[in-house]
C-alpha cells in the first residue's frame, strides 16, 4: 500500500470518526436495541449524529478477527457480521416506524470489505442466507423511506459489496488515489477461470467499464453516484447526499434511487445501454399476449 500514503483501507473506525459529529458514536445501540458487544466483531454498528441528525452506522472493522469463525478477519463479512448488520437495519426501521419519511434516520454504510466468509462452516450453515438477509433488510429500509448511503473507503469486492453497499440509495466512493478497490475478481483469477489471455485482459482493463476494476469504471456504469476526491470532504458529501435522497423520497421518486436508479444512471452515462431496451421489448411482447394470462 506504499503508493497510497493516505489510504483508508483497514480504517473503518477512523472513517466513522471523520464522518460523524465528534464523540457521538454509540456503538451497538440502535433505538432500544443493544447488540451483544462481542458478536460479529468484524462489523461495527451503532448510532451517531451527522450534522445534528441521528444516523445508523454500519461499518467493516478490518482490525478484528472472529474467534469462532477462522475465515472471518480483515474486514470479511461472516455470518455473525451479516446478521448483526441486518439487525442494525431492522431495528432502525423499528425505531422510526411511526415517523414520517422526512424523519426516518439515515443509514450509513462504511464499506471496506474483501469478501464474504469463504469457509466450510459458512457453507454448512448457509452464508448465502446471512448475506441475503442483510440485503433484504436494506432494501426494506430504503423502500420504507430511510435514506441509505454507502461510502466506499477501501475495498468493495464482489459479493461483499453486493451485501454491504449495492442496496444503498446512493453509493459514494473515495477516488483511486486513496487505493479504493471496487471489483469482482482480480484479473489473474478472471484469466484463469475464463481461460482468456492475461495480457489481453490487462489491456482491456484500462478502458472497458463493464470489465475493469475501479471506482471510476463503476461510475460510468451508474454503479457509483459520486466520487469523492478528497477524504476531508467525505462528511460534507455524505450529508449532501442524505439531503438529496430525503428530497427525492419526499417527491415519491423512489425509482430514481437504489439499484433501479443506478440502472437509469448506467444508461445516461453510456455504460449499460442494452438492458433497458431488452426490458422494454419484453414488456411490449408481454402486452401482446397479456390478456390470455391475466384474464384466463
Amino acid at each position: 500500500m506504499d503508493e497510497f500514503d493516505n489510504t483508508m483501507i483497514g480504517r473503518g473506525r477512523d472513517a466513522i470518526d471523520m464522518i460523524v459529529d465528534p464523540d457521538t458514536f454509540q456503538e451497538n445501540a440502535i433505538g432500544t436495541y443493544q447488540c451483544e458487544p462481542d458478536y460479529g466483531p468484524c462489523a461495527s454498528v451503532g448510532t451517531a449524529q451527522l450534522k445534528g441528525r441521528p444516523v445508523t452506522i454500519i461499518a467493516n472493522d478490518a482490525q478484528q478477527f472472529n474467534e469462532r469463525f477462522p475465515v472471518v478477519f480483515g474486514g470479511v463479512i461472516g455470518m455473525e457480521e451479516a446478521y448483526k448488520m441486518a439487525m442494525a437495519v431492522y431495528h432502525s426501521i423499528e425505531a422510526d416506524k411511526d415517523k414520517p419519511i422526512a424523519e426516518k434516520r439515515p443509514i450509513l454504510l462504511i464499506v471496506d470489505t474483501p469478501g464474504n466468509g469463504p469457509g466450510k462452516m459458512e457453507e454448512i450453515a448457509g452464508m448465502n442466507k446471512a448475506t441475503g438477509s442483510y440485503q433484504l433488510a436494506l432494501a426494506e429500509a430504503r423502500k420504507t423511506g430511510h435514506p441509505v448511503i454507502a461510502c466506499v473507503i477501501g475495498r468493495a469486492i464482489s459479493g461483499a459489496f453486493l451485501c454491504h453497499g449495492l442496496q444503498a440509495d446512493h453509493i459514494l466512493a473515495l477516488s483511486k488515489e486513496y487505493g479504493t478497490m471496487i471489483h469482482v475478481m482480480p484479473l489473474t483469477s478472471i484469466s484463469r477461470i475464463t481461460k482468456m489471455d492475461i495480457e489481453k485482459l490487462e489491456a482491456l482493463s484500462t478502458s472497458n467499464p463493464v470489465f475493469a476494476a475501479g471506482a471510476e469504471f463503476f461510475y460510468k456504469l451508474g454503479g457509483v453516484e459520486e466520487i469523492i476526491n478528497k477524504v476531508e470532504d467525505m462528511r460534507d458529501v455524505i450529508a449532501r447526499h442524505v439531503d438529496d435522497v430525503y428530497a427525492t423520497k419526499a417527491k415519491g421518486e423512489f425509482e430514481k434511487l437504489g439499484p433501479w436508479g443506478r440502472g437509469l444512471l448506467g444508461e445516461e452515462r453510456g455504460g449499460r445501454v442494452v438492458r433497458l431496451k431488452a426490458m422494454a421489448k419484453m414488456d411490449e411482447e408481454f402486452e401482446a399476449v397479456a390478456d390470455q394470462y391475466l384474464n384466463a
Binding site: G132, Q135, L136, A139, S158, F161, L162, L166, Q167, H183, V184, M185, I190, I193, T194, M196, P209, V210, F211, A212, F217, F218, L221, G222, G223, P259, W260, R262, G263, G266, G271, R272, R275
Partner: peptide, 15 residues
Amino acid sequence: LHEANAGLLAHAEVM
C-alpha cells in the same frame, strides 16, 4: 466474469 461489473449490478437489481 467477462462483464463482471454489469453482472454484479444486475444481482442487486434482482434483490
